[in-house]
Design a protein around this nucleic acid. Structure first.
Lengths: 143, 143
DNA sequence: GTCCGTGCAAAGGATTTGCATAATC
DNA sequence: GATTATGCAAATCCTTTGCACGGAC
């Protein structure tokens, strides 16, 4: 059943272990889409799994190196991770509820490449974060 | 002579003190344009000034609150600051020499506003980092 | 003189690392 | 059975905070 996950790990050159499978599973099933190491650790604990926080960090780091997950620094104080799905996208971040919405805008992508070229930069990656207040939080705000 | 700096501090509601004037001076005269607290601390020490690192952090934090400087998180591990000049701009970051180039692209700005609106977000700020290798570092790279 | 600012050292939070044990292949 | 993973605790890095003293107004 989780044969797919086993393959993903093997492909990444990592042994199949319980912590790795569980973390992969959590990342695949999170509603939030983006989780911090601490979030994942708490989820594991709440599911009765005995995994150390250090292991969570180690596994996430290995996953990142293997290209299974992408790490983001929306928040200065802690990193969040999401599964690498192959499609690049940028993020809208609600500063109130921390909700994250992904989007892709081709014209921005094109302009970025032009800007890098104009400045003689060989672009390796880029990230665009738009911070704001999402619709539901605007509604919830005190009048 | 540094009467201009005195005014900036007063306007920010901060008393005129040696550490504040010195840090303002360093930020105004840095070639790099963007410095970390540690960078500023080391610069102070190298100039023979006896200022504590904690003070550097405190002053930068006050300056940020006062709108005198802007803080950036290019690097996950430490914040960098630059003087607030009033004009918004985004950044190209060389991953090799850490050089930072500022740029503004009106069409990207416009698209961002549209995207926020489309998702019913009230945009408060945004940041776009393009990471890559700058021209001179490309040349310096081993063949 | 009062209040704010500073230096130092200690505290804090996120992340990493050392080491002995335990699991995978 | 050899090698890689894990858990725990200690260590690190950047940044913040508590406190007593010194300086700005």
């Amino acid at each position: 059943m989780s044969e797919k996950k086993n393959q993903e790990l093997r492909r990444a050159g990592l042994k199949i272990t319980a912590p790795r499978l569980k973390i992969l599973h959590i990342l695949e099933n999170t509603a939030a889409g983006h989780m911090s190491a601490e979030d994942i650790y708490k989820t594991l604990l709440s599911e009765g799994d005995d995994v150390g926080l250090a292991t969570v960090y180690r596994v996430l780091s290995q996953f990142e190196t293997a290209g299974l997950v992408v790490r983001h620094g929306f928040d200065e104080n802690h990193a969040v991770y999401e599964l690498e799905t192959g499609d690049h996208h940028d993020h809208l971040v609600c500063q109130d509820c921390r909700k994250i919405i992904e989007f892709v805008d081709e014209s921005i992508e094109v302009r970025q490449a032009e800007i890098a070229r104009k400045h003689d930069f060989k672009m390796t990656s880029h990230c665009l974060y738009i911070y704001g207040i999402c619709g539901s939080c605007q509604t919830d705000l005190p009048a």
